[in-house]
């Protein structure tokens, strides 16, 4: 049997080579496509993202405006943690790389919990987190002799969505959301929540149980972290949830505001009423705290001893606080007030 496979395989090779030919053709075609991509880069409205190569070659003109010594710093900064906070840290790392090209900033996405596990063991310098550090994690840090500073870097509004074809839901109270999402909930039709709504089934969409979004939503709405009904379509990929909710007229789902902002034409935002009237999540409502209880804080935790000792880490955190507001807004989250960043920076003094 095996002989056949290995002794006469020449014919098998031809289709494989043929496939390679297709691919080679594709690569050549891409060379033509690259012209398009370059023009897209030029016409993009983003505030002059200097090409990486220029940044790496160390243009002193960029660093001249900032503190002089930044360009002379070197070292490696390890960041890990929440995938929600990742875009902010990535943006800061990218900009920092332009002024301090010899400092390597590595950003990972192990999740808030995974990040804290490494942070409290002293493996990382900074931990991204979409929730405050838990008591157990704080205890683990103390046990390992790791002191830390907590910096609030932005806000995210967890948003409740329905399909644009849904013409009756404008607003839901926290009680309605709780009745809908609590474990063992018997709500399976819209008119179970409000008698004026039609008697149609509700199809629920939400993040998976490993997600910080899930933790925060269950804590605020159900009152207990991780307590949720289980009969909903769960995905760790928020884009899957966007697809699901936009294509199903009976859908209701929740996920981060940034995913709504990018898909506003495909989704309908539901206001949340926590007793003071109906508020829809907008940048302003999230920033002012008016949208509650689903405005969630985004943090970075910094190893205290290392930030005092290592100049490059200290400069990076200072840089984070100086540029955090603009970059947070750019990647789709809600920045804090200027005072909040100043208070943050004061922790370093």
């Amino acid at each position: 049997m095996a002989m056949k496979i290995y002794i006469r395989p020449a014919k098998v090779g031809i289709p494989a080579l043929w496939l390679l030919g297709i691919l080679a053709g594709a690569l050549i075609a891409s060379a033509c496509g690259s012209a398009q991509a370059t023009s897209a880069a030029v016409s993009a409205p983003t505030a002059a993202p200097a090409p990486m190569s220029a940044a790496v070659s160390g243009s002193t003109s960029a660093s001249a405006e900032v503190e002089q010594p930044l360009a002379q710093l070197s070292g490696t900064i390890e960041i890990d943690g929440s995938s929600t906070v990742f875009p902010i840290s990535e943006a800061v790392a990218e900009e920092f790389g332009k002024v301090a090209p010899d400092v390597h900033v590595n950003v990972g996405v192990s999740g808030s919990g995974g990040g804290f596990k490494r942070f409290t063991a002293g493996e990382t310098d900074i931990s991204d987190a979409s929730r405050p550090i838990s008591d157990e994690e704080a205890a683990a840090a103390a046990e390992n002799g790791i002191g830390y500073l907590e910096f609030l870097v932005g806000l995210d509004g967890l948003s409740v969505m329905v399909s644009p074809q849904n013409d009756f839901v404008e607003c839901m109270t926290v009680e309605q959301l709780e009745a809908l999402w609590q474990p063992g909930s018997s709500v399976d039709s819209w008119n179970d929540l409000d008698p004026s709504w039609p008697e149609r089934g509700i199809n629920l969409y939400g993040p998976g149980t490993d997600s910080g979004t899930f933790d925060y939503f269950t804590e605020e709405i159900v009152g207990e972290m991780q307590a949720s009904r289980a009969d909903y379509t769960a995905s760790e990929d928020d884009n899957v949830l966007v697809q699901g909710v936009s294509g199903d007229r009976n859908a209701l789902g929740y996920f981060g505001y940034a995913y709504y902002a990018e898909n506003a034409d495909k989704l309908k935002l539901v206001g949340v009423d926590a007793g003071d009237g109906c508020v829809k999540p907008t940048i302003d409502a999230i920033a002012s705290g008016e949208y509650k209880p689903l405005s969630r804080p985004l943090f970075i935790y910094v190893n205290e001893e290392r930030v005092q000792r290592r100049a490059e880490l200290r400069s990076f955190v200072e840089f984070y606080m100086e540029n955090g507001a603009a970059l947070t807004r750019e990647v789709g989250y809600v920045p804090l007030s200027a005072e909040a960043y100043a208070d943050n920076a004061a922790q370093l003094k």
């Binding site: 496509g33 991509a37 880069a41 875009p87 990535e90 990218e94």
Partner: peptide, 26 residues
Amino acid sequence: ILMEGLPWLSLGFLTNYPSRHPEIAG
């Protein structure tokens, strides 16, 4: 995949480091 990805494929895509700007991300 080819229809979606080809316009983004360029030499820069292979030689650039990741970025928050998709146009210059590599």
